[in-house]
């Protein structure tokens, strides 16, 4: 059964159409790779899935609810169910790492301070970040900031995670770490959508792919299905990415 179902999604910015007709679905526990060239609007699709951008047309069904007409307050429960991992981590720079991780717990759970402390220690250990609780985001490397961002997004146990370029600008070690974390979440049965240009990561973690081009889904399917397509869209895209 599909946890995320997008039907004929349309979006324009200041009269410029970015998406004409985007339709795809993601089943529970599945990882979908949303790929496409720079500027095709992959992040716009991702942001629209939790209402950070309003759709101009079409339907976005999250766990059976069409969220396109939801108000900000109605979107709260959707955003608890579906976590968003920002490209740069988007950590609150005036808060310590501990406070960043405690933020969603204090907002959406009834845990007391001791339980919060315990939960954060576990999470930091799982993400290889122990000992950094009292540091501020600007005292961490880019890779560590992304890991904290990921840890913060999933700390309240979402049903789905949306990853926006999680490995962009990272060294091979940190890229591998992020890949491992995405796979770990997948093993726990969490549904995910990954927007990326990093095809090795996409191939390592995604079950299916959607290739966006010119405001539409040009091709979708598993890696084998796309590679065997006679139009060769995926091959063209990968060759184009390599040529950059």
């Amino acid at each position: 059964m599909a946890l995320i179902d997008v039907k004929s999604f349309k979006k324009s910015f200041r009269g410029k159409t970015v998406h004409k007709d985007i339709s795809f679905s993601v089943n529970k526990g599945e990882c979908l790779g949303l790929v496409g060239g720079s500027g095709v609007g992959k992040s716009v699709v991702l942001r629209s899935l939790i209402g950070l951008e309003k759709a101009d047309g079409g339907q976005i069904m999250i766990d059976g609810e069409d969220i396109t007409k939801f108000s900000e307050s109605q979107l709260t429960h959707v955003r608890i169910k579906v976590a968003y991992v920002f490209q740069n981590g988007a950590l609150f720079d005036s808060l310590t790492i501990f406070e960043n991780l405690a933020f969603p717990l204090r907002e959406h759970t009834d845990l007391n301070e001791n339980q919060i402390q315990e939960k954060i220690s576990e999470q930091l250990e799982e993400f290889g970040l122990s000992g950094n609780e009292n540091l501020y985001p600007n005292q961490l490397s880019g890779g560590m900031q992304k890991r904290v961002g990921l840890a913060r997004s999933i700390i309240i146990g979402p049903k789905a995670i949306l990853y926006d370029e999680p490995t962009a600008g990272l060294d091979p070690y940190n890229t591998l770490k992020i890949q491992e974390m995405i796979l770990r979440m997948k093993k726990k049965g969490v549904t995910s959508i990954l927007v990326t240009h990093d095809m090795p990561t996409a191939f390592a973690v995604c079950d299916r792919f959607c290739l966006i081009e010119d405001g539409r889904i040009k091709a979708q399917g598993t890696r084998d299905e796309l590679e065997n397509q006679k139009e060769g869209y995926l091959k063209k895209f990968i060759d184009g990415e390599r040529g950059k």
């Binding site: 950070l52 900000e72 307050s73 955003r79 976590a83 988007a90 933020f103 969603p104 907002e107």
Partner: peptide, 9 residues
């Protein structure tokens, strides 16, 4: 955006 994505206003 992160505040909104974390379900807060």
């Amino acid at each position: 955006d992160a505040l909104r994505a974390l379900g807060t206003s």
